[in-house]
Design a protein around this nucleic acid. Structure first.
Length: 671
DNA sequence: ATAGGGTTAG
């Protein structure tokens, strides 16, 4: 028997020709794998002539009505099937235009089966498709996410053009196979094909992550030499590359260099700032660009909402929400997810839940965002209830983030036992990958419950090497429970792992200071000096009208600083009568007591609170935001102010909300 | 024919 390509016998081709008159017997899926070899066969048997000429009217190009997203699928499916049948009937009379029309419809309908039938038909009838049609097929397969079939088609193409390369690269990128996309790009360059603006725009999105960024830089230098440096699509992709690598100034330079701007490039730069936590900059840029007439769409609003969540800028957020309601954007799930997040982070769970309840479609992110809202507010029971609802509804399955959120919700909400039970239940299930973060939550839970022996044992037995986050959780628990022995272990491990993180030194100092171990405090402080570690400066802010007032520790920058600091004094004097005793041990500087108290009164959250007491009308809650965790003394201070003045105070710190009503905080004094 | 920006957790 004669072999073709060492794999397929001629008998195979004979069989194909045999069935070409009986199209229904064809099984395109099975033939798909062999079709590549078919194209490599330069000389095949001569095409058959149709046994009976087809009526002239059937020889016209297959025509489809214009595709509209609203047309019922079953209806257009019928049309496609009909056309596919006609293809079989026509046999050898299929022309380029017919295949083209058919493939277009297959792409529109994402019909993998249709594409396979078309390809099989080409094979049977010895039609050698031009590059154009092969590329259409590749695009179809990529759209249907059968990457291997697309790649096989691509590899076996006798000649490839720029579009085929670009399509293939884009397919890999969209499915997250970044290194394959990059390697294909390199191959393309080596084969002497020069990229166009489409190729550059798509390949840059493959350069995510730390290792990809170096490729991105190199591609940038290619772009500079190309005519596409200032192309809008290429530019957006490029600025996004820099923003995601944390180089926001480079991103901004690219943005400013673009001769024209559109929704995408503007959104890309705004979200670049927002994703790096430069929320204020993101908001300022958004406002500027809007004044300059920037077009916005749902992605723009989603991005700006991220920044507003970070700032807890409720008034702005509500304004964006209002705008969304008035526009045609209210059907986008991602936008609603962002709104849920924004309202929870602004402290308004009622609004967040209302949006969640009204959503026509929810994704796992919607659930996670809502759960995270309850979690940050210390509402452990609501977290567990909503999680149970999610399980009962059984429409969306929880993912790793869901479990992480639920566990940390139990920890924040003082539901240690529920959390531990849920962890055991989850650990037995497959389908969700338990990462070290989940184990970190359990350490949190055990730490909160004060079970240090169990926590240490758990760390020893878990299937991961403990990382800084694990030791950090344990150290945090030690600070609250004043457990010096375990704290020393955790603290030393942590300092060894993250010698550059100033926050760790500070927590350890506070632990030692709380037990009066000043010798140890000094040692840690010296170590900190030695390594020249800096602590992130604390700042607090409060939204008044639509203005954000920001205060730094011992601030002298706010225009009303005199008024504010004398108000802090006044509050302090008044609550002292109700039992406020400044926690001088939390001042780690070696100064006299009076100086220590003055430093405590200069903490940014006290300034913001005093500012709120002056300016927020009676009966309204005072909402304060802080970039770090709140300190014990400020927590006491706020509780007593709330009690003595009968004010509701909420403080959102780095990790959670503290809702203080009548001197009682929702965190139950554990954070 | 092929192209750019987006949401949750710690």
């Amino acid at each position: 028997m004669m072999m073709v390509d060492g794999l397929i016998s001629l008998a195979f081709f004979d069989r194909i020709y045999d069935i070409s008159t009986r199209p229904k017997a064809v099984r395109p899926q099975n033939m798909l794998r062999r079709v590549a070899y078919f194209y490599h066969q330069p000389k095949g048997p001569k095409p058959l002539t149709p046994s009976r000429p087809l009526p002239a009217h059937q020889l016209k190009t297959l025509i489809f009505p214009p595709h509209s997203p609203n047309s019922s699928t079953s209806e257009s499916n019928g049309l496609l099937n009909h056309a596919l049948q006609e293809m079989c009937m026509r046999g050898l009379n299929m022309k380029f235009k017919d295949y083209d029309a058919l493939l277009n419809e297959c792409v529109n309908q994402k019909s993998l089966r249709g594409g396979q039938r078309v390809q099989a038909h080409m094979m049977k009838t010895q039609y050698l498709p031009p590059v154009y049609l092969r590329t259409r097929l590749i695009v179809l397969y990529l759209k249907c996410e059968v990457l291997n079939d697309a790649r096989m088609m691509f590899d076996e193409m006798p000649e490839k053009n720029l579009v085929s390369w670009t399509a293939m690269i884009s397919g890999y990128t969209k499915s997250g196979f970044y290194s394959e996309a990059l390697s294909l790009f390199v191959h393309m360059l080596r084969s002497g094909i020069y990229p166009n603006e489409f190729t550059f725009a798509t390949v840059l999105t493959s350069c995510v992550g730390a290792s990809g960024f170096e490729y991105g830089r190199q591609i940038h230098s290619l772009i500079v030499k190309s005519p596409f440096e200032f192309h809008m699509y290429v530019g957006s992709s490029l600025l996004d590359l820099y923003a995601k690598a944390g180089l926001i100034h480079e991103a901004r330079t690219v943005f400013e260099s673009l001769p024209e701007r559109d929704v995408v490039s503007c959104t890309a730069i705004i979200s670049g700032y927002a994703q790096l936590g430069l929320d204020k900059e993101a908001l300022e840029l958004f406002c500027t660009l809007q004044r300059e007439g920037m077009a916005s769409n749902y992605v723009t609003y989603t991005s700006i909402l991220t920044a507003l969540s970070g700032l807890a800028a409720f008034e702005y957020g509500r304004q964006v929400h209002g705008h969304v309601l008035r526009s045609e954007l209210s059907s986008y799930t991602v936008l609603h997810n962002s709104l849920i997040d924004m309202y929870s982070k602004c402290g308004n769970l009622t609004y967040a839940r209302r949006i969640f309840d009204k959503m026509p479609e929810r994704t796992v992110i919607s659930w996670n965002a809502m759960l995270a809202g309850y979690s940050k507010h210390g509402m452990g029971k609501s977290v567990v209830d909503l999680y149970n609802t999610m399980r009962e509804e059984n429409k969306i399955s929880p993912d790793g983030t869901t479990l992480l959120t639920v566990l940390s919700g139990c920890s924040h909400g003082g539901m240690e036992n529920s959390g531990l039970e849920l962890f055991d239940e989850m650990a037995g299930k497959d389908g969700i990958d338990m990462g070290i973060e989940h184990y970190g939550c359990v350490v949190d839970l055990l730490g909160r419950a004060g079970q240090f022996e169990r926590a240490l044992q758990f760390i020893r037995e878990m299937p991961f090497e403990p990382n800084a986050a694990i030791w950090g959780s344990l150290l945090g628990a030690c600070r609250v429970h004043k457990n010096i022995e375990v704290g020393k272990i955790a603290g030393n491990r942590l300092l060894a792992m993250e010698p550059e993180n100033g926050g760790n030194y500070v927590i350890l100092c506070h632990l030692y200071a709380s037990e009066g171990r000043w010798d140890e405090v000094t040692k840690v402080r010296e170590l900190m000096m030695e390594k020249a570690v800096m602590k992130e400066p604390g700042k607090s802010w409060i939204e008044l009208g639509r203005i954000l007032h920001t205060f730094y520790a011992s601030d002298r920058s706010h225009p009303r600083k005199e008024e504010v600091s004398s108000k802090v004094r006044e509050l302090s004097d008044r609550i002292k009568a109700a039992g406020y005793n400044p926690d001088l041990s939390s001042v780690l500087y070696d100064v006299d007591e009076e100086q220590k108290e003055r430093m405590l009164l200069g903490h940014s959250e006290k300034l913001a609170l005093a500012f709120g007491m002056i300016n927020v009308s009676e009966g309204k809650p005072i909402r304060i935001m802080k970039n770090l965790r709140i300190c014990v003394d400020c927590h006491n201070f706020a509780k007593l102010v709330s009690q003595v003045y009968g004010r509701e105070v909420s403080i959102r710190d780095k990790s959670r909300f503290h809702h203080i009503v009548n001197g009682i905080c929702s965190c139950e004094d554990y954070w």
